[in-house]
């Protein structure tokens, strides 16, 4: 997936990316610079993700969205100026996205994903999707997977959020720091002469597609035992994806009361369906899922952005395969589903 990474960085690049090169190394930066990224869905989460990826210095970013910028987007979507409400979200975001980093080629696409052929998606090295229905997500994921391209998706509803990653068959290197005592000279008495040695190990991670993760079988004992940890974030995601599929929209702040009732009813159905303990999915988690809260979009967009950097630079272990942010406990965790 990584093209030409032999070309040296220009002085301007070295200067601008200095601090991150000090963290992830020159090789990673070159790989970033060779990567083409597609971002689908310019909601607040899409904007946060785009910002992080553009700042990192990839080769190109395409912003894809067929929706119009709405008032409610302005709570978290900082790439589109407030006076562009009613215009296409991707196009409205273009100018500010480009200003974030003139060294990255940023473009827009205003067609809906359903209008675009499979080859469209596989022209990118990695696709990040947000705001889509389950069926659309699964299609794009499978298209990417067949061409060995990486796929991530995620959403933020209110303060709650999740991310899923399918990096297919992913090879990466991980640096492990080891300490060893060293001596200088024949009778060195310097007590603190220690050296840290960094060794790089190659690793491999195998991923599963989204449909596997979303249809995890909760009757299986290994998943049942996960219930004891007591975090219902996975089910909150299921409920919200179902809501979107069923109503063709996200929970609406203007219909806060009625939508909350719907969510709680869907919750009860899911609890019955999967034989979950009653009360396992608290009301509290389903009351803060309206609009996109800026802080939560920053958090989940930060995680997705970092995963994209890890995936394309093939450095450091990426999350396999779901990340959840539970705002009630302020905990963020990774779990593997569907394997």
């Amino acid at each position: 997936m990584v093209e030409n990474n032999e070309m040296e960085l220009s002085e301007a690049e070295a200067e601008q990316y200095d601090r991150q090169i000090r963290l992830w190394g020159l090789e990673s930066q070159k790989r970033l610079r060779a990567s083409k990224v597609l971002i689908i869905g310019l909601s607040g989460l899409g904007a946060e993700t785009a910002k992080n990826i553009i700042l990192s210095g990839v080769k190109s970013v395409c912003l894809l969205d067929n929706e119009k910028l709405k008032e409610i987007d302005l709570y978290s979507q900082f790439l589109a100026p407030p006076d562009k409400v009613g215009e296409n979200r991707a196009e409205a975001s273009l100018q500010r996205a480009r200003a974030l980093n003139p060294m990255v080629d940023v473009t827009s696409e205003t067609k809906s994903v359903d209008e675009l052929p499979d080859e469209y998606f596989t022209a990118f090295d990695i696709v990040c999707a947000t705001g889509l229905k389950q069926e659309q997500l699964e299609r794009i994921n499978n298209v990417c997977r067949d061409s060995n391209k990486k796929f991530l998706c995620g959403d933020v509803w209110g303060m709650y959020g999740y991310m899923f990653a399918d990096l297919v068959d992913h090879e990466y290197s991980e640096e492990i720091v080891q300490h060893k005592a060293v001596k200088r000279g024949p009778d060195d008495t310097e007590k603190n002469a220690r050296e840290t040695v960094t060794i790089t190990v190659k690793r491999r991670a195998i991923y599963v597609p989204l449909q596997n993760a979303l249809s995890a079988d909760w009757t299986k004992p290994e998943l049942r035992s996960r219930l004891r940890r007591g975090d219902p974030s996975y089910f909150v995601m299921k409920i919200l994806l179902r809501f979107r599929d069923e109503y063709n929209r996200n929970p609406d702040p203007a219909k806060r009361r009625t939508d909350t009732e719907i969510l709680l009813r869907m919750r009860d159905e899911l609890v019955k369906e999967l034989s979950l303990p009653v009360g396992f999915i608290s009301d509290a988690l389903l009351t803060d899922v309206f609009g996109t809260v800026s802080g939560a979009a920053a958090v989940v967009g930060g995680v997705i952005g970092q995963e994209v950097v890890k995936a394309v630079s093939q450095r450091e272990p990426p999350h396999n395969n779901m990340f959840f942010f539970n705002p009630v406990k302020c905990v963020g965790f990774v779990e593997l589903y569907g394997q």
Binding site: K51, G295, A297, V299, C330
Partner: peptide
């Protein structure tokens, strides 16, 4: 005394701070 700094970690920490 350069401590490397990246956009993503800053975004996450700032997001958590404002939620707090």
């Amino acid at each position: 005394n350069i401590i490397p700094a990246i956009a993503t970690a800053n975004a996450i920490v700032a997001g958590l701070a404002v939620l707090r």
